[in-house]
Design a protein around this nucleic acid. Structure first.
Lengths: 241, 241, 241, 241
DNA sequence: TATGAATGAGATTTCATTCAT
DNA sequence: TATGAATGAAATCTCATTCAT
């Protein structure tokens, strides 16, 4: 009757996609907070616009919901990783940029880190069953490979290091900083989420990777010139030149 | 009557300490396998020589039991770490030894890795409440600090890197290889527990750390001699000297 | 726009009768497979060309649907039973034919047997409420009565046996072979659906009925001649005449 | 303090066997009444001295409970069947006694009949998984076999009929009278539980079996004497000799 | 006549924990 | 110190049915 009849009742057009996304968002928070076994379907439902019943309607089971959350998290990261263009930078700078990107992404997506940790607690069995995730991370490796190849061609990188290993070295450090934040913080009395540490760590891992990739300094081709680009970046901790 | 009854059952002296250790061992396996929330007190009791009642008698609650498992795991690692004597080695070799030790330890103690992961899933709140664990890891840092100091004094290490950061760089990589074995293995099609990868990775992380610690090559103190010990270790992938 | 949209979907004239039959066929399979309580409306809807809503539109409820299935099953059997013409055969042969027909019908309509079993599990309460089923089986009894009367008139059947009892003796055996196929098969290690058993059993029940109907052999009317038609049919197990 | 302290609280010594039997009895009634799918664990628990939890404690699941009920029902019947001694009777009388026993047992144990019907609705899959039931019914067959053998030796039974088939003929009729009580009663307007029908039916099935077993009357060994024991029993419906 | 989303009520099952002895 | 039975509370999941269009 009134022009804004919808205003009286909160507009309730059935919008399955929105319902699903609503559930997924809440579920993600719950899983991230409590793990797979610790999460409660009731708790998820309570914070949702819909009911517990709908969770089962759309996702079949608690595990199905968890898998959907996991798949979405991986899909998100992929979408973002694609945006990075490193081909125009010289190899060492490209590596540094890539490390920084990885570092920042992990740092700003602790939910993702936790989901991956949780999935590993469960032996990766959900990921293993997922069709949508498997070939997902090839893109990252291609990027690393391209940079390493360029570096080798230009003589600024050595030929010995495997791209996946490089990716792992980077990932491990960035991931660990977030995943082991609590235990590491307690045992060493450090707040890994502090801005100061963050900057220093970001520089350190980039330095470590770049130096690792540098050609063997004592080798025949090595020389002051060749090593020049490998200089450690200016560190906040160092007094500077 | 009583005399006979006693004779029939093999005399079972109550041995509280043994009972506790039995429970702890079983509980540890269960927690490692399923996480804190996923572990079942019933399952633990079933695999124990004693009964559920004893678990509560000795550990008060499921969480108490979990904490005891966690504390024991940290105590074990500490006991082992003490055995390592690195003071007699030149700095770079000492670092390499230390990295290798860390690598091997993590590799051969996946239970410990998983317990730490689980504890981080739970925001480290049990560790935070534990009295026995806190000062535990200072020993490692002292070792690193001693080596770095020696290296700096001898001019083979740069002055800029923080010992805790170095420890973290090492730990992160070694830990990640085990903790993220499942997801990484799936996404990149690699079996991180294979012997070949293990050897290569161990070398890589040692190389990376040692190179990171090397003084800035372009600096005034740098020179072929100084850099000699920093050469990349012989790699299986490299064609040789 | 609309013209195209219409063109894309193959024009689907609503055909209520076809929809109902589709639902009934699927529902029957589901009820037969799982029983009344065990059947799932969702499962039925999923295998149907239409949706769950239509089930309720046409049949009102799960029980309404079940009743419709039951009524249809009884209607089918009636239609078939009418086709049998036994009046031209001599009484004993007529009985044998009727037994064989019953046997074969039950054997080849296990769905019907199961529906009847299910209905008995539910105390026949749906059948009791059904208007269409009640007078249905009178036809069979009329057939039996006619044969018995003829046999009595001709002196080859005794007068003592009630037609409904005869029908029950036949039905019981034929029904049991199908309804209790599983438990009997397991307990006695026999496959009641095997062709060999089928033939032997068909002969046995016919023999049993015919012999039961034979006049008391010791009675005044008994004699070798009278008993001749009552000879056991040639059995596969017997060495022959 | 008082001599009958137990009188105040209903004596609650833990008696697991009694608890289990209590649950079993109630469960049996519920399954018999509603079938496996239709039965409600809540309903069972409500009529029990204990709680729903104990049902799961002792029987693991609804299906586990159902299986226990089924096994107990079969165990009961076996225990009773053993008590029957037929070896001292002449063959035809032994058969009659056995038929009557079977008839009376089925008649007075409709619960058992219903459980078997229910189990067949579920394709006998629980029975198939049961270890305790399988070899159970061999005893019955041995009894039949012994009687048939004796009858054949004495020349009063023919050699052609298989003991299991005989058992099936008897069982089928007795079982059907109870299992199909509802539908048969409705369709033919008969109350199968009435005493009059019961007596007549019992006589009929015994007659049918005995006559079936009689040697072929037209055969060389047949004669008035041989057939004498095969006379139909005096029927209430018949005027008698 | 048809439909996909939605749902309340209730089903089965699980779990850490305690009681009585 | 030990034990088997017991349990309340809450977990996951299911189901026939209806609503809005």
């Amino acid at each position: 009757m009134t022009t804004r009849a919808d205003a009286e009742k909160p507009a309730r057009k059935p919008d399955p996609e929105r319902t699903k996304q609503d559930i997924l968002a809440v579920a993600r928070a719950e899983f991230v907070e409590h793990g797979l076994s610790g999460a409660r379907v009731d708790a998820i439902a309570a914070r949702t616009r819909t009911t517990k019943r709908m969770i089962y309607y759309y996702f079949g089971s608690k595990e199905g919901l968890y898998l959907a959350v996991l798949e979405q998290a991986y899909a998100d990261i992929r979408a973002i990783e694609q945006t990075l263009d490193l081909k125009s930078l010289p190899p060492a700078q490209a590596i540094r940029r890539m490390v920084e990107f990885t570092f920042d992404y992990q740092e700003s997506h602790p939910d993702f880190i936790r989901l991956v940790s949780i999935e590993n607690i469960h032996h990766g069995k959900h990921l293993a069953r997922s069709d949508s995730i498997r070939q997902l991370n090839e893109a990252v490796i291609e990027v690393v490979t391209e940079i390493l190849d360029r570096g080798k061609r230009e003589g600024v990188f050595c030929a010995e290091v495997d791209p996946v290993d490089v990716h792992m070295l980077i990932s491990a450090f960035c991931f660990f900083r977030v995943s082991n934040r609590y235990t590491f913080g307690l045992l060493f009395g450090r707040d890994l989420s502090s801005a100061a540490l963050r900057a220093r760590h970001k520089r350190m891992i980039a330095d470590a990777v770049i130096r690792l990739l540098a050609p063997d300094p004592a080798g025949p081709e090595a020389g002051p010139t060749a090593r020049a680009p490998m200089r450690r970046s200016r560190s906040a901790a160092s007094p500077g030149p």
